[in-house]
Design a protein around this nucleic acid. Structure first.
Length: 627
RNA sequence: GCCCCGGUAGCUAAGCCCGGUUAUAGCAGCGGCCUCGUAAGCCGCAGGUCGCGGGUUCAAAUCCCGCCCGGGGCUCCA
């Protein structure tokens, strides 16, 4: 049967390299480029006839009408079959396909037959863009669509389970989710994909209203601008994660954000995914923007001399930025971006035993990191994915992850390995639209050390290929903020005051003078608090006190201190604590000294980084960035 | 990428279906009054390429076509 992998493409470039068979067609060894076309990787098998070829083209014609394309490239591609037709028959049929297609009014190009060729291809993203067809002699094309066949591999089968902390594995269909509603939502999202109501994600309104982050229409979609308050928060999170990873043993490095497309270690890997990078042209070279820190770190480790004594070896970079050219339709606020900041820490491990120990350490590191954002185990769900054979040999590791987590986890088991890793876990946050996204993750990679030529020398002086663990203890920083904002929104909906963790609140204390004759006193108090390393500002605008309190509440400020006659006389502060009297609760006003207030804040933010807010301390001096 | 919804002042929206004076509000901004005790004080002023480009028409925010941006869905996620 004639087999055709048909790919609706933005462009293809190909160049004949050398003849593979004596009967190869004549042609020039020049690069050819075609744009906006359907590429037909075509393979002719034993028993195919000219008629089979024509029938195949009838199917192609139909397809072209559907996707509104009119140009095709017939590209002989022997790799789709193991019972090829003879070269002379195949060539005859391919030529017939061309002339028949031309008679149907299609613009037809044909790549030379019998050559080893190289090509670069950019595939369009729509659901019909990638299809596989086979046309059996004497039978009309039934329009059979075996999508996903791009990989020329059968899609791996996934089996879904829930694993209990005691290690019991229960199939998802039979699992009783009561008491685990969030896990149910997550499992549904992963397995079936449910529809969400059509609305803007709550965190998007919040990120703008709080003047943290915003879209930047002048950039590519999914690239954001950060206002001063947002930049402060992001910077604090970055610093926090970095400190955590360094304490764990990560060596912080920095690597380039762009790489040569043709670099030998990278190219074969990349050519499998040509559509998902940003591509940058400089002179006649093509560069891609990194989508993780893997390249830079692996290239660095390739050149390093590593002894077994130094293992496990941890290397870390906070990527500002990583780039992924996600399809436009799947971008969403801070949840899915095209450029994002992600901590990426790799561990080089001597063997599986060492890898397992390291894996558990990093699992705990990730839990600790998320805790810093006020996210505990009730706020996210664990997913573990592995191959069947890995599970059978390493049940103990998988079970101890779930046990450590202390809640049932979603399990995806593959019958064979398809990716470069054998085991992967993620913490997934489920948002107010019931969408799930991964935060922390770690993987055991058994492939890339070899691909990048990373070795260590063992105790016998022999070169050994290590295992590599890939971990992001927090996931993308932007996504952490997304999770915090979505959680705050949920708090608000359920009657709790929405707020950010104290250490991340841009303003921790707001001083509100009752009238302008108390401005001097307010400023003095603000300056005293600022000296103690607390982010404080004061409201010197000509507004009523009620109005100032309202606005401070809408900014989610944790402590609001009102200064008037009473405070000046007594020296005792009246503190409106958001947790008890804020967010419309109208509760008690706390009476405390300045020292008590400062030391409470210091206690509550212990162990977390501090940075001053870069905005002026007087509100009247601040521009409004949004709204 | 495809399908659906949206884009009107800095922000949030009305007007659009059914074309016709000077495009309408609220908030924010600016000016003034008010000097206030824990979630919105009062008055005034200014503010507009109606997302961009083209077309239809005597006349377009309004109708048609193309594009850009946002949201949702499909699909995908190394």
């Amino acid at each position: 049967m004639v087999k055709i992998l048909q790919l609706h493409s933005d462009f293809i470039e190909f160049r004949p390299v050398e003849k593979e068979i004596p009967s190869a067609e004549k042609c020039e060894k020049k690069i050819q480029r075609l744009e906006d076309l359907v590429v037909l990787f075509t393979c002719v098998e034993e028993g195919d006839t000219l008629q089979t070829g024509r029938e195949a083209m009838d199917g192609v014609k139909e397809y072209l009408e559907k996707v509104k394309a009119h140009r095709i490239l017939i590209y002989p591609y022997a790799h789709l079959s193991n019972k090829l037709a003879s070269p002379s028959d195949a060539l005859k049929i391919l030529k017939e396909m061309k002339s028949y297609a031309e008679s149907l009014g299609i613009e037809v190009h044909r790549a030379p037959f019998g050559w080893c060729k190289e090509f670069t291809l950019s595939i369009k993203g729509h659901p019909l863009a990638e299809q596989f067809r086979s046309i059996t002699p004497g039978e009309k094309d039934k329009g059979e669509i075996v999508s996903e066949a791009l990989k020329a591999e059968e899609k791996v089968k996934s089996y879904w389970y829930i694993m209990e902390p005691d290690g019991r594995l229960i199939s998802v269909e039979e699992y009783d989710f009561s008491g685990h509603e969030n896990l149910k939502k997550f499992a549904d999202y992963e397995i079936s994909k449910m529809r969400a109501a059509q609305r803007t994600p709550p965190h998007v309104d919040l990120m703008r209203r709080l003047e943290l982050v915003d879209y930047e229409p002048a950039s590519d979609p999914g690239n954001f601008r950060w206002y001063p308050k947002g930049r402060l928060i992001k910077s604090l999170i970055e610093q926090f994660v970095t400190e955590k990873v360094i304490a764990y043993g990560g060596m912080e490095v920095e690597t380039p954000i762009m790489y040569d497309f043709e670099h030998p270690s990278l190219s074969n890997y990349l050519h499998r995914f040509p559509a998902r990078q940003y591509i940058l042209k400089s002179d006649d070279k093509n560069f891609f923007l990194r989508f993780s820190a893997c390249f830079g770190q692996f290239l660095m480790l390739h050149d390093a001399q590593i002894s077994y004594r130094q293992l496990p070896l941890r290397i870390y970079e906070l990527t500002r930025y990583s780039f992924r050219r996600e399809k436009s339709g799947e971008l969403s606020g801070l949840r899915r971006l095209r450029s994002f900041t992600m901590p990426d820490v790799h561990a080089i491990c001597a063997d599986m035993k060492q890898a397992k120990e390291e894996f558990m350490k990093r699992f705990r590191l990730s839990i600790e990191t998320l805790k810093g954002f006020g996210l505990d185990r009730n706020d996210y769900e664990l997913a573990i994915r592995f191959t069947k054979s890995f599970y059978e040999e390493n049940k103990d590791l998988i079970i101890s992850l779930v046990k450590e987590f202390g809640k049932p986890a979603l399990v995806e088991m593959w019958d064979e390995r398809f990716f470069y890793f054998v085991l992967k876990w993620e913490f997934n946050f489920v948002d107010n639209l019931d969408k799930a996204s991964a935060l922390s993750t770690d993987q055991i990679d058994i492939e890339n050390a070899k691909r990048y030529g990373i070795f260590y020398i063992d105790e016998n002086g022999e070169k050994k290929v290590p295992l590599i663990l890939h971990c992001s203890p927090s996931g993308a920083i932007e996504r952490d903020l997304y999770a915090m904002l979505e959680k705050a929104y949920r708090d608000q909906k359920e009657g709790r005051p929405p707020m950010l963790p104290l250490w991340l609140s841009p303003t921790q204390v707001r001083i509100v003078p009752v009238a302008d004759r108390f401005y001097a006193e307010a400023e003095k108090i603000a300056e005293e608090i600022a000296k103690c390393g607390v982010r404080v500002d004061w409201d010197d605008r000509p507004l009523t006190m009620q109005r100032k309190i309202r606005e401070a509440e809408m900014e989610w400020i944790p402590y609001i201190v009102v200064i008037g006659q009473r405070e000046v006389e007594s020296g005792v502060l009246s503190v409106r604590d958001r947790r008890i009297s804020g967010a419309g609760r109208g509760g008690e006003i706390r009476k405390m000294s300045l020292e008590e207030l400062v030391s409470e804040i210091k206690d509550l933010t212990r162990g977390k980084p501090f940075k001053p807010l870069s905005l002026p301390m007087r509100l009247s001096k601040r521009p409004r960035f949004y709204g």
